[in-house]
Amino acid sequence: MDLQELRIFATVVQEGGITKAAKRLNRVQSNVTTRVRQLEDRLQTELFHRRGKRLILTPAGQTLLEYAERLLALASEAEAAVQHDTPRGVFRLGAMESTAAVRLPEPLSVYAKKHPDVVLELKTGNPTQLSKALMAGEIDAALVAEPVAEARFDWIVAFDEEPVIVTGQDHPPISDSGDLPRTVIVFEHGCPHRRRLEEWYAERRDLPQRTVELGSYHAMLGCVLAGMGAALVPRSVISSFPEAHRLRIHRLPKHQQRLRTLLIWQKGACPPKVAALRRILQGGDRPNTDQDPANGPSHK
Score class of each variant (00 low, 15 high):
residue 195 R to D: 10
residue 180 L to C: 03
residue 193 H to E: 06
residue 162 E to Y: 12
residue 197 L to G: 13
residue 200 W to Y: 06
residue 196 R to W: 02
residue 195 R to Y: 12
residue 184 V to I: 07
residue 180 L to I: 04
residue 190 G to P: 06
residue 162 E to P: 12
residue 193 H to V: 04
residue 195 R to G: 15
residue 172 P to M: 06
residue 167 T to F: 00
residue 194 R to Y: 13
residue 186 V to I: 13
residue 166 V to M: 05
residue 199 E to Q: 10
residue 195 R to K: 15
residue 200 W to N: 07
residue 170 D to H: 11
residue 182 R to N: 06
residue 170 D to W: 06
residue 185 I to R: 09
residue 189 H to E: 08
residue 198 E to Q: 08
residue 169 Q to K: 13
residue 177 S to Y: 08
residue 171 H to E: 09
residue 162 E to S: 06
residue 175 S to V: 12
residue 172 P to V: 14
residue 186 V to P: 13
residue 161 E to V: 02
residue 177 S to V: 12
residue 200 W to L: 10
residue 182 R to G: 14
residue 190 G to Y: 05
residue 183 T to A: 09
residue 177 S to G: 09
residue 197 L to C: 10
residue 167 T to G: 00
residue 166 V to N: 09
residue 188 E to D: 15
residue 161 E to Y: 03
residue 175 S to C: 15
residue 187 F to G: 07
residue 181 P to E: 08
residue 175 S to N: 07
residue 174 I to V: 07
residue 173 P to I: 14
residue 184 V to H: 02
residue 176 D to M: 08
residue 181 P to M: 10
residue 170 D to V: 05
residue 170 D to T: 11
residue 192 P to I: 00
residue 196 R to Q: 06
residue 162 E to H: 07
residue 184 V to R: 01
residue 171 H to R: 11
residue 172 P to Q: 05
residue 191 C to I: 02
residue 181 P to C: 15
residue 191 C to V: 03
residue 166 V to Q: 06
residue 197 L to P: 09
residue 178 G to Q: 10
residue 188 E to S: 12
residue 177 S to I: 15
residue 182 R to T: 07
residue 162 E to W: 13
residue 196 R to L: 14
residue 175 S to T: 13
residue 188 E to V: 13
residue 179 D to E: 09
residue 192 P to F: 00
residue 193 H to D: 11
residue 180 L to S: 02
residue 198 E to R: 02
residue 169 Q to W: 00
residue 182 R to V: 10
residue 199 E to G: 11
residue 163 P to S: 01
residue 187 F to C: 03
residue 161 E to W: 00
residue 163 P to R: 00
residue 188 E to F: 14
residue 167 T to M: 00
residue 179 D to Y: 05
residue 181 P to N: 10
